[in-house]
Simulated assay, not measured.
Amino acid sequence: MTSGHLSISCACVAVHEAEYSGDSERPPSVAVVEAVAAAEGVEPTELRSLSADIDLEAVDALFENDDTTGQAHVLSYTVAGWNVFVRGDGAIRVCDPTQTGEPTPTFEQACCD
């Protein structure tokens, strides 16, 4: 692996992709909730609370100013039955773990190009 580049592969099928921006008033945790809701085809208010699966405040703290530090993070976890990948530059991918294929890079390009 090249220094400064991070690549994560998964075998699950992506069903929804989203982004958040550090310049936005919307924190990463809200973008994740919206992405999971979109994957389920419901409104975010219709989801059961995701706080039982993940500490949403910790997600915000992890990615706070992440794209400006040069130390991008990638977080992967399972929430509400979905595999969720969040990258420090704002990319979010929600995958269905019941649909699998050949392992491929979770995100198309390295996070720190």
Rank of each mutant, 00 (worst) to 15 (best):
A38G: 10
P105I: 02
G41C: 04
V32W: 00
A31M: 01
L62M: 15
S9N: 09
L62Q: 10
A35I: 02
G90T: 10
D53Y: 14
P28D: 02
P27R: 01
V86H: 06
G22S: 07
D55G: 04
L50A: 10
E57F: 10
A80W: 12
S51I: 03
F85R: 02
G88S: 06
S7N: 02
V84Y: 01
P28I: 01
V33P: 01
Q71Y: 14
E19S: 05
E46F: 12
V36L: 03
D66M: 10
D66F: 10
R48C: 07
A39H: 02
E108N: 11
Q99E: 14
Q99C: 12
V42N: 03
T2Q: 09
T78H: 07
D55F: 09
E34R: 10
S29G: 05
V30M: 04
S29T: 05
R87F: 03
L6F: 09
V59C: 04
P27E: 01
V59L: 13
C95I: 01
G22T: 07
P103D: 06
A39N: 02
T69E: 14
H16N: 13
T45C: 11
G70W: 06
E25V: 05
W82A: 00
T45I: 12
I54F: 12
H5D: 14
D66R: 07
G90N: 06
A39R: 00
D89G: 09
T78W: 02
Q71R: 15
E40L: 08
E43T: 08
